[in-house]
Computed example of a mutant assay.
Amino acid sequence: MLAIIRGAGDIATAIALRLWKCGISVVMTEIEQPLTVRRTVAFSEAVRLGQMQVEGVLAIRVRDVVQAKEVLERKNAIPVLIDPDCRCIELMPDVVVDAILAKRNLGTSMDMASVVVGVGPGFTAGEDCHAVVETMRGHTLGRTYYEGSALPNTAVPGLVGGFAGERVLRAPADGLFRGVCAIGDHVEEGQVVAYAGNAPVVAMLTGVLRGLIADGVRVSKGLKCGDVDPRGDACYCRLVSDKGLSVAGGVLEAILCLSGILGNRQ
């Protein structure tokens, strides 16, 4: 079974890890300059670095579909393509998962594969995909919907360590991003951790810098560019989040249910 995952950020990576560990071949697509914040647990870093390892699984940037096939045949890594339009659909996957998390559909349709899964808001099961997986923290996180849509985007981050909006760093201005601190560093409330152009990005609480956009990325005012974890444990920076694992479980459920690979329940 082959799955194409659109997006290679931290949530998409959690999905890729779950599928790959279950024996499903995976190809991931990304934009040329990823906007990933939790880069230490995201295969999107392969675009920038050439390869990226997360929790013992390797992803490799490939230039085209031919090279992606070569990596798939070796069965030792996940190929990552710069392919925002998903032209690699010519691989004829069994599954397409849209995990771009754009809060809107950027071109995914039900005719792309036998099983098409939309992750988060912006999709409607039965219209542009076969199933939708919930991404909002709470009792519905990771649930799989075979009708309807996920909860609408509230623009309010979920609680982590008792904090919500305060933990998210946003670009105060348009410009090129430049980090002063690194992922895993301890930061204090009020500390400058990066710059967007000449405007300082300031931590709103004390904790560990869990995520930060890569240097040189052009950001727009208001864009999420970092994440401070108030729990203060730097080890979490290298682990897929509980949210990622939950969403990945919902995607796996959808694939198993809709593909009938394990047989249909009577």
Rank of each mutant, 00 (worst) to 15 (best):
95 V>C: 12
106 L>I: 10
93 P>M: 13
248 A>T: 11
50 G>T: 02
10 D>L: 04
239 L>G: 09
120 G>W: 03
66 V>R: 15
76 N>S: 06
258 L>T: 13
140 T>K: 10
47 V>M: 01
246 S>M: 15
90 E>R: 15
82 I>E: 02
104 R>C: 05
190 G>H: 12
2 L>K: 03
43 F>Y: 04
167 R>N: 10
19 L>Q: 02
78 I>A: 05
165 G>Q: 12
218 R>N: 11
192 V>E: 09
45 E>G: 05
62 V>R: 04
164 A>K: 14
150 A>R: 15
4 I>P: 00
21 K>I: 07
86 C>W: 01
167 R>L: 12
65 V>Q: 11
187 V>P: 04
27 V>R: 02
147 E>I: 13
82 I>R: 03
194 A>K: 00
265 R>G: 07
254 A>L: 12
136 M>V: 09
252 L>N: 11
3 A>D: 07
157 P>E: 07
219 V>G: 05
122 G>E: 06
43 F>W: 05
264 N>T: 14
218 R>T: 13
184 G>R: 11
231 R>L: 14
126 G>T: 12
1 M>G: 13
161 G>T: 09
19 L>N: 04
81 L>N: 03
107 G>V: 08
243 K>Y: 15
240 V>R: 08
14 A>K: 02
76 N>F: 03
103 K>G: 02
40 T>F: 02
64 D>P: 04
3 A>T: 11
136 M>F: 06
215 D>M: 09
219 V>R: 06
15 I>P: 01
175 G>M: 07
30 E>W: 03
207 G>K: 07
21 K>N: 10
44 S>I: 01
136 M>E: 07
58 L>N: 08
49 L>R: 09
97 V>K: 10
91 L>A: 13
214 A>E: 00
191 Q>H: 03
120 G>V: 06
1 M>Q: 07
223 L>I: 09
263 G>P: 12
171 A>F: 11
77 A>H: 02
94 D>W: 12
62 V>K: 06
140 T>D: 08
254 A>R: 14
191 Q>G: 05
156 V>N: 09
214 A>K: 00
134 E>L: 02
62 V>G: 05
40 T>P: 04
146 Y>M: 11
218 R>D: 08
235 C>L: 14
112 M>E: 08
3 A>C: 13
23 G>Q: 12
56 G>P: 09
177 F>C: 10
24 I>C: 07
192 V>D: 08
22 C>I: 06
68 A>R: 04
194 A>E: 06
172 P>L: 09
7 G>V: 03
160 V>N: 04
76 N>L: 04
236 Y>R: 15
72 L>E: 02
229 D>V: 10
235 C>P: 04
258 L>M: 11
165 G>H: 10
107 G>L: 01
226 G>E: 11
205 L>T: 15
193 V>I: 08
3 A>N: 08
78 I>Q: 04
152 P>A: 14
5 I>N: 01
6 R>T: 00
50 G>A: 02
186 H>S: 07
217 V>W: 01
133 V>G: 01
161 G>R: 10
